[in-house]
Structure formats: C-alpha cells, structure tokens
Amino acid sequence: MSTAPLAADKPEMLRLEGVHKHFGSHHVLRNVSLSVRQGDKVVLCGPSGSGKSTLIRCINRLVSHDQGRVLVEGIEVSDHARDLELIRRDVGMVFQQFNLFPHLTILENCTLAPMWARKMGKKDAEALALSLLERVHIPDQAHKYPPQLSGGQQQRAAIARALCMKPKVMLFDEPTSALDPEMVKEVLDVMTELAAEGMTMICVTHEMGFARKVADQVVFMDKGEIVEEAAPEEFFTAPRNERTRQFLCQILSHE
C-alpha cells in the first residue's frame, strides 16, 4: 500500500486532539491525537489495556471523552443527540463479538438501520442488503438467524450490516479475535477487498500480516498513549521506540 505521508488534497475524515479519558481513577487515554484522511487505512495495535478499543469508541461516542476534541468530518462529537445520530450513520462499526441481533434474520439485521435511520423503503433496503451480503459472499444466509451461522459468516454479516448504512468510515474492533483460526482468513479477505475499494478504515487488530498488506499507517498504543505511528514497512522493520520493539518481538514470535 502507499508509503507516502497522508496526502494533503484528501479531505480529513477524523481528527482526535488531545483526547483524555478516565474510567474512575484509571487514565485510559492520555493526550491522544490522531488525524485520518479519506481513504486511509489505519491499523491500531498494542497490548491489551492500552486503550485501543476505547479510542475507537470515542469516535462514535460509544464512550464519551473527558478532555480534548473528537471531530468526524469536521463535526465535533458531543452529547447533542441529533448530531450524534447523524455522525453514527456515517461511521460504521464492526465488533469483536459480532453483536448481530439474534432475534432477527440476517436480512432483517441489515435492513433495520437503512429503513429506520435512512428512511429507505423495504424493497430498496432488501435489495441493498442482498447486494452487500453478496459482496461478503454469504447471500444464501439472508433468511437464517445469526446463531445458525458460523463465526466467520456472522462477522461477515456484521460487516454487511454496517456497510448497509453506506458509511464513510469503518471502525473495526478486533474483528477476528473471537474467531476460530480457519475463519480468520475469510473475514480478513473481505476487509482487504473493502480497503482496496477505497474505504477509510481504522482497524484494531493483532493480525500483523493484514497490517503489513493493507495499512497505510500503523499506530502503536501502550498505556493509553500513542507511542509510535509509521507506515508499515518502517514500523515492522525499523521501529523507533523501544516499547514498540518489545511489543513486536512478543507478537511476531507467534507467526
């Protein structure tokens, strides 16, 4: 993927400025600043407890930050309900535990948001959902219920569900961590295709192979701070920070 620094002519999609977050006395995010431009693929990695999941949850306000600013497409993320719903419609999110709605079919899972939030008609929503389910290679599962699908299929369905809202940014919170190893590839392949189509993505993951192939920027976080940010080649072959090096040693020794 591109090695050039984030091009100046691409509009800025996301920005975090000096973001802090505390959970009680635990300082989870310390002065986090990040800028993501349209079409960028950012991989966020780091040891558990480093604040990666909290960071992406601050973007769509599943978690509210204590200090600093979070801007999505120039709009500041705050508690004001109307803006929040609009922001969330443009930011899609895929979760580690899939979080599909088990009482609805896969098709209904996908059409719920477009019909209610984007006021789409049922036929249009279903057509859109089916086309996206095809894109993630599970069109035949449309009328089944989530518990009837395998983990890999469920996660792909979750990706389709998020894509049905035609988001401008996709957030992935360890999308393959809860999957059996043989199903990790099918989900990563879908994410790679999505990246190739130009989607702006922020991905929290331990899959370093994916990061090397797909990411424009790899961001390493530790204890709530961004420790290092670099393009993949530089990040993996010549990390500047000692903590990054330690982390890479631990993680790459498994591969």
Binding site: N60, L62, E85, L86, I87, R88, R89, V91, G92, M93, F95, Q97, N99, L100, F101, P102, H103, L112, A113, W116, A117, A158, R161, A162, M165
Partner: peptide, 27 residues
C-alpha cells in the same frame, strides 16, 4: 440483554426509542 446489542444498535445510528423497541425489548 448483552451490552454489545446496545452498542451495535447505537453504532448504526438508531435512535434510543427504536433500539429499545426493536432490539432490546424483543430479547
């Protein structure tokens, strides 16, 4: 009802009453 359900519904931009009506209450 697992919190992940609320998170996913909120992340889709659904208003809170709809989350309760369509996602939480049925479960």
């Amino acid at each position: 009802v697992p919190n992940g359900q609320r998170e996913a519904a909120a992340a889709l931009g659904l208003p809170r009453w709809l989350v309760m009506y369509k996602v939480i209450l049925p479960q």
